[in-house]
Amino acid sequence: MDGLSDVITVARAGRPRSAYVRWHAPWGQRFASVPGSVGFQVILEGHCRLLSPHAAPVRLEAGDVLFLPHGSGHTLADSPATAVAAPACSPDDAELPGPYASDSVDRLGRGGPATVVLCGAYRLGPSRTHPLLLTLPDLIHLPAGQDRHPELHAAVRLLTAEVGNPRLSTSVTIPALLDTLLMYNLRIWLAQQPAPDTPTGWAAALNDPAVTAALHAIHRDPAAPWTVAKLAAEAGLSRATFARRFTSMIGQPPLGYLTWWRLTAAARLLQATEAPLRSIAAQVGYASEFAFANAFKRTHGLAPSTYRRRN
């Protein structure tokens, strides 16, 4: 595993949701904010407007992707003049109904030109949200274009086919394709970030070979007896230079991040497996179940067994 892959595999809680929705003009739909989620909208056919009370309407064309890392509320409509319907879902809707249900929906309207949108959302584990996601803006617009982001649009085509025409194994294929789509969104956003005068933050870290090497080492083998010196050797830097660069980019010292990652990975194992606590403790680098339980409670506020029951 690596730091970017784990943004998805560790943070996600439950199954992602998706839908293939066809609107006919005139139409307008407000999507409520859903804290603790990641959402996206892909315009498959036709066009529409992204409306905001604080900015001019943005025209969205077929192939455009909207990525909402914090589940922010937003509004889509065929025209800025169209009346907007009530929110499609509310923050308390655990199953994300309406356009966020895993289904294909045809909203007939009054028979005007159609706009087809692929909608999707992830629930995030609140105690496991990766710090990279916290640094992203509320909304990322990735415009379509000739030969622009071909991998992203290939994933969109595959996902559209599965959602629009469910078949054998679709229940397995859709979550994997949603993970792929989210990964391409993150890759593209990271690649588009300009090089800052003073490199800080996760975008800079994942474009820095030395810090990335240390992150890969931690994520590849969190149970290893890492020290700052050993991680500096992975990065090919002196101990002092490595510690300074890692801390400035990641926002915490190397061993602080190592502890956070170990206990985040442990939370995922507690939720997703039935492995005994002593096994999970060993997998994330703790010599005893007692030491692991104390560290886990300090970070997550619950004993490991209680966390497992509640999740």
Rank of each mutant, 00 (worst) to 15 (best):
M1P: 04
G3K: 06
G3Y: 01
V7S: 01
I8G: 00
R15Q: 07
R17H: 09
Y20W: 13
V21A: 08
R22W: 03
W23S: 08
W23K: 03
P26Q: 07
G28I: 14
G28M: 14
R30S: 12
P35L: 15
F40M: 06
Q41W: 01
V42Q: 03
V42S: 05
L44V: 15
G46E: 02
V65L: 13
P69Q: 00
D78C: 13
S79H: 10
P80T: 01
A83V: 13
V84L: 15
A86D: 10
A101D: 04
A101E: 01
D103I: 04
D103P: 00
S104A: 15
V105R: 03
L108F: 01
G109E: 05
T115V: 09
T115D: 02
V117M: 11
Y122F: 15
R123C: 03
S127H: 07
P131V: 09
L134A: 11
T135Y: 05
P137K: 07
I140T: 05
L142I: 11
L142F: 02
A144M: 11
Q146I: 03
E151G: 14
L152E: 00
H153D: 05
A154W: 00
V156W: 01
L159H: 02
E162L: 10
E162P: 08
P166I: 06
S171H: 12
T173K: 11
P175V: 07
L178W: 00
L178H: 00
L181D: 00
L182W: 03
R187T: 12
I188H: 09
W189F: 15
W189T: 13
T198I: 15
P199M: 06
T200N: 02
G201E: 01
A203I: 05
A203M: 08
L206C: 12
N207I: 00
D208L: 13
A213Y: 04
A214G: 14
A214K: 07
H216S: 12
I218T: 05
R220H: 04
D221A: 06
A224M: 08
A229R: 14
A233T: 13
A233R: 14
G236D: 05
L237P: 03
R239I: 06
A240I: 09
T241A: 14
A243H: 06
T247V: 07
P253D: 14
G256H: 12
Y257N: 01
L258E: 09
W260I: 11
W260Q: 13
A265W: 05
A266E: 06
A267M: 08
R268H: 13
L269Q: 10
Q271E: 15
E274S: 12
E274Y: 10
S279M: 09
V284C: 03
S288T: 15
F290M: 15
A291K: 05
A295E: 00
T299Q: 03
T299G: 00
L302Q: 13
A303M: 08
R308T: 00
N311P: 11
